[in-house]
Design a protein around this nucleic acid. Structure first.
Lengths: 201, 201
DNA sequence: TGATTATAGCGAACAAAAAGCGAATTGCAA
DNA sequence: TTGCAATTCGCTTTTTGTTCGCTATAATCA
């Protein structure tokens, strides 16, 4: 996978910074060094470099960038080649591209864990008994996200999250089941669902 | 694993202290040296450095810090800890077990590839648009397995496989769609689906 | 050639980690 | 058994990363 000119400049900056200081720069410092005015831009560059396997970092961690020395590359790991797309009963897939997919593409470097799902309360979301949900450890959630929530300190559930004033509605994805409506301070978010892994047989 | 600026300062202090004195500093001495007013802060720094594998120490033991010379590292894998089970809207998960899950648990050492699913022909099987199906390259299938099948050399589809005499029935998992019934010699199996990976967002 | 996709960029609102504090508590070793 | 050192707890503040919406310009596809 090729690198762009700008990406190379960023990479050079990172290398220089680390060898000068012994620790990696903050996004702010990168922005200053590269004369960028928005951290969003820095963020995007770093993400792209990460996707291309040129550096490693931990999601949401300060100064956690590691430039991967050329040569120390690929993990043979758990990646699968992505053979293409298969359309709805329709025609064919095609591209013998060099794309691939792995768990890493779902969870990134986030702090995650998996839960095995029991029961069908999320059936309408196509999460069913026996599936594994891949959960990022988080204490907050956004409207409509699927979360693992601890209700009243006793009961953990998998639901969609909706904040309504100072109440929280936890919505099962199963039309037979009713939403749970509780005061915000009786709910603690354990994490948000990033993906699902299902294994047949 | 990368280090923050402050952490590097602490680490430098430790190195300097040890090489000057031949023994490691107490938390009190670190606090003085780094101009910190709370031992809790020192403690947190030391713990973090320990977590990052940069130093080693014995819990609750005075002056037991050992700075680990750069060279010994660890890598992160694509495995996720399996935190337990989450029951259908019901109670809790529990086990902080040492189980884990990864793509390898789904595909094993088989010859596999992934396909991105387009359309909803397998909706009733909870395989939906955007999901990735994990497929083992195979020429044969057993009754009822989900397969990737090439029909009449032109059309690849994702269906359940049923052999009926010398006909083959390919059954979509969508009640709105009709099964495909074709002579066995007009169908070639491309693989069988071992699992599904879904990524949100 | 028009449509789509990837890169590059901006600012602002927001979430989270790192860093810090004081005080109370616990544990080790002499 | 006592004293020093390490640990833990519940905060606050500062620093750092993340995300969203939007613009613009290449590069690629059909």
């Amino acid at each position: 996978m090729a690198i762009t000119r700008r990406q190379k400049e960023i990479l050079d900056f990172l290398n220089a910074f680390v060898s000068r200081n012994g620790y990696s720069p903050s996004f702010e410092e990168i922005a200053r060094g590269m004369e960028l005015k928005s951290l969003a831009t820095v963020h995007k560059h770093i993400s792209n470099l990460e996707k291309k396997g040129l550096l490693d970092r931990v999601h949401n961690r300060s100064r956690s960038i590691d430039v991967i020395p050329p040569g120390t590359r690929t993990r043979t790991s758990d990646r699968l080649p992505l053979a293409g797309r298969i359309a709805a009963g329709k025609p064919v897939e095609a591209s013998e591209s060099y794309e691939s997919i792995s768990l890493h593409d779902v969870v990134g470097n986030r702090d995650c864990f998996a839960l095995e799902v029991r029961g069908d309360s999320m059936r309408d979301e196509h999460i069913v008994n026996g599936d594994y949900v891949l959960v990022e450890r988080t204490r907050t959630a956004r409207q409509g996200e699927i979360v693992v929530a601890l209700v009243r300190g006793t009961e953990t559930t998998l639901k969609r999250y909706y904040s309504e004033g100072n109440m929280i509605r936890l919505q099962p994805a199963n039309y037979e089941m009713d939403p749970i409506l509780v005061p915000a301070n009786h709910v603690s978010i354990q994490g948000r669902v990033l993906g699902v892994l299902r294994k047949y047989r």
